[in-house]
Amino acid sequence: MNIVVCVKQVPDTTEVKIDPVTNTLIRQGVPSIVNPFDKNAVEAALQLKEKHGGTVTVISMGPPQAKEALKECLAMGADEAILLSDRAFGGADTLATSHTLAAGIKKLENVDIILCGKQAIDGDTAQVGPEIAEHLGISQITYVAKIEVEGKTVRVEREHEEGYEVIEASMPVVMTVVKSINEPRYPTIKGTMKANRREIPTWTAQDITIDEKVIGLKGSPTQVRRIFTPPQRVQGQVIEADTAREAAQILVNKLAEAKIV
């Protein structure tokens, strides 16, 4: 079974810097980590490999520094890592990013399962995984909390607000996983030393044979108009009363005074 995990390197801080001209994140000088949800995806892939055999390949689109994130995944136990990096990929929105990742996955061939974290903590869109499935023309299951494999069929528990849905799909399939699916393992010292010696291949736009009209800024139908840090929420007020009816009346009065009701 061949498993591909899409990972992203994200800023490791809530105080991100914003470029006022491009309205994008300034990543230079900002500590970066593997997107936490993607670590859950890597762990899920490793557990499937341990149970059913196969290989785990991690793939990421980003600048050269994203190799550090890939090396961490290799230290966790992934077999191979590939970086998609090219100036032509710069400025991509989720659609352009998914086009690039899908093209990279197509080059790998014979992929059975593609795993992604449910979303990236810097963008929080949860769009890239489903878009990859659309470009590849294969099934997708989002918010996966448990995975079972039997032959060429996956059976999962999909998390939602009221509980879980049990869904089956045939391979190949794209799945995005939630945090509750597992607890990611820590890289071992031996694994880290081995990963640091690995040479991670870098694929450019020419290597993955993709139309440059669908990648980078050219292939991005959406653009960021403004990024800002939301104001800190004002702490609420606790209403104290002898009975629930009195508390409700006090609340209604306060809402009326604020002209909310």
Score class of each variant (00 low, 15 high):
residue 5 V to Q: 02
residue 5 V to C: 07
residue 5 V to L: 10
residue 7 V to R: 06
residue 15 E to Q: 13
residue 19 D to Y: 13
residue 21 V to L: 14
residue 22 T to I: 09
residue 23 N to E: 12
residue 26 I to N: 09
residue 28 Q to M: 09
residue 34 V to P: 04
residue 35 N to D: 03
residue 36 P to E: 08
residue 45 A to G: 11
residue 46 L to I: 05
residue 47 Q to E: 12
residue 47 Q to H: 04
residue 49 K to E: 04
residue 49 K to L: 04
residue 54 G to L: 01
residue 55 T to V: 05
residue 56 V to N: 04
residue 56 V to R: 01
residue 58 V to I: 13
residue 60 S to Y: 02
residue 67 K to W: 00
residue 67 K to S: 12
residue 68 E to P: 03
residue 69 A to P: 10
residue 70 L to H: 11
residue 72 E to D: 15
residue 72 E to T: 15
residue 72 E to P: 06
residue 78 A to I: 03
residue 78 A to D: 03
residue 79 D to W: 00
residue 80 E to K: 14
residue 80 E to G: 02
residue 84 L to S: 06
residue 86 D to R: 05
residue 88 A to V: 12
residue 91 G to P: 09
residue 94 T to G: 05
residue 96 A to W: 06
residue 96 A to G: 01
residue 103 A to I: 05
residue 111 V to N: 06
residue 111 V to E: 03
residue 114 I to K: 01
residue 116 C to A: 10
residue 118 K to E: 10
residue 122 D to N: 06
residue 123 G to T: 05
residue 129 G to W: 12
residue 129 G to N: 10
residue 130 P to V: 05
residue 140 Q to K: 07
residue 145 A to N: 09
residue 153 T to G: 06
residue 157 E to R: 13
residue 161 E to Q: 13
residue 165 E to G: 00
residue 167 I to F: 01
residue 170 S to A: 14
residue 174 V to E: 02
residue 175 M to Y: 07
residue 177 V to F: 00
residue 179 K to N: 12
residue 180 S to V: 11
residue 180 S to N: 08
residue 182 N to W: 00
residue 187 P to R: 09
residue 190 K to T: 14
residue 191 G to V: 09
residue 193 M to A: 03
residue 194 K to Y: 02
residue 197 R to L: 14
residue 198 R to Q: 14
residue 202 T to K: 11
residue 202 T to G: 00
residue 204 T to S: 15
residue 214 V to S: 11
residue 214 V to E: 08
residue 218 K to G: 15
residue 223 Q to L: 08
residue 224 V to M: 03
residue 225 R to H: 07
residue 227 I to D: 02
residue 228 F to Y: 15
residue 229 T to E: 11
residue 235 Q to F: 02
residue 237 Q to T: 14
residue 238 V to F: 12
residue 240 E to V: 15
residue 246 E to C: 04
residue 251 L to C: 12
residue 251 L to E: 08
residue 254 K to Y: 13
residue 257 E to L: 14
residue 258 A to H: 11
residue 260 I to T: 11
